[in-house]
Design a protein around this nucleic acid. Structure first.
Lengths: 150, 150
DNA sequence: CCTTGACTTGAAGTTGACTTCAACTTTTAG
DNA sequence: CTAAAAGTTGAAGTCAACTTCAAGTCAAGG
């Protein structure tokens, strides 16, 4: 597959594909002339990358998850740590989702004034700031670049 | 509470609190001299903001969720749409978590070579790129700023 | 009174993740 | 053969979300 084909299949723009390759997240499996050729597996890879990003990982983190560079030990530890983080995130996100859903259905004029909304979200937020023991600021996230990227 | 107190309680640096205030995400409830004074509720607000970010919302999106500015109708629609998005994200994230957990326990030298890891993640990635109908690139995310901010 | 320390501001700098641009090489169609 | 279309590069630009900086204000202690 050439770069345009991958872009078409995944919706990831060519510029991003080149950027990812430079960063070492994907690899072209040779050149046809000077054009990159990609193995079909790159499509799955890109899905995983998108998934990792959605989970709040940086591109560098995603790369270390996907490539067995140095110590496997450290890698595995890191892996389950990440899994724990993601589980925690999932818990909170479900609460947020419930909160939003309730807010959407709730008759109160402003959800800021709806007590059950408040409660749901407060529950979701509980434990984010541990007032002593934990580091706080656990889960990161990101902003949309620009276009919805057809 | 003054700004330092809020920072201490939440782990969110003072500079960020000022930035958020400028952006309209939080509000100081008056000044003591020229110093801001915050209501205790701001702590919960900040937790919600962090949560929203973890869910992949931009600060602007978080603000619109939290403030009843214009049309409530649009707001509610948007709310349940966001809830749907989050639910979808949660589904994928759980698959990722399972994948990572398996990879951490798996005896294969590199998880890239482990077939069950591949399968799990491929399942997680399924539907991310819809090959025709949907826009792809559904959920965003973010990277860590710098300090762990204790 | 004067310094110290916590706060204030606006402006500029940083970082991650891309995108855009200018200049160039190939491949493809006529 | 030649021109357009699609690919390539490195460098520079953009954007969101902050952080850092310079310069100033203010309350409190010595």
């Amino acid at each position: 597959m050439d770069i345009a084909e991958v872009a078409k299949r995944t919706g990831v723009p060519a510029s991003t594909l080149r950027y990812y390759e430079k960063k070492g997240l994907i690899h072209s499996i040779g050149r046809d002339g000077l054009r990159r050729r990609f193995a079909p597996g790159v499509v799955d890879q890109l899905a995983l990358i998108a998934l990792g990003q959605a989970a709040g990982l940086s591109l560098d983190e995603v790369r270390t998850m996907l490539s067995p560079n140095g110590e496997p030990n450290i890698d595995r530890q890191l892996l389950s740590a990440k899994a724990d983080e993601i589980d925690a995130l999932v818990k909170r996100l479900r609460a947020v989702s419930n909160g939003l859903r309730h807010a959407a259905a709730c008759p109160a004029p402003s959800h800021a004034e709806c007590p059950s909304f408040q409660k749901l979200l407060k529950a979701a937020a509980l434990g984010m700031f541990d007032t002593q023991t934990t580091p706080a600021r656990k889960a990161p996230s990101r902003s949309r670049p620009t276009s919805p990227s057809r």
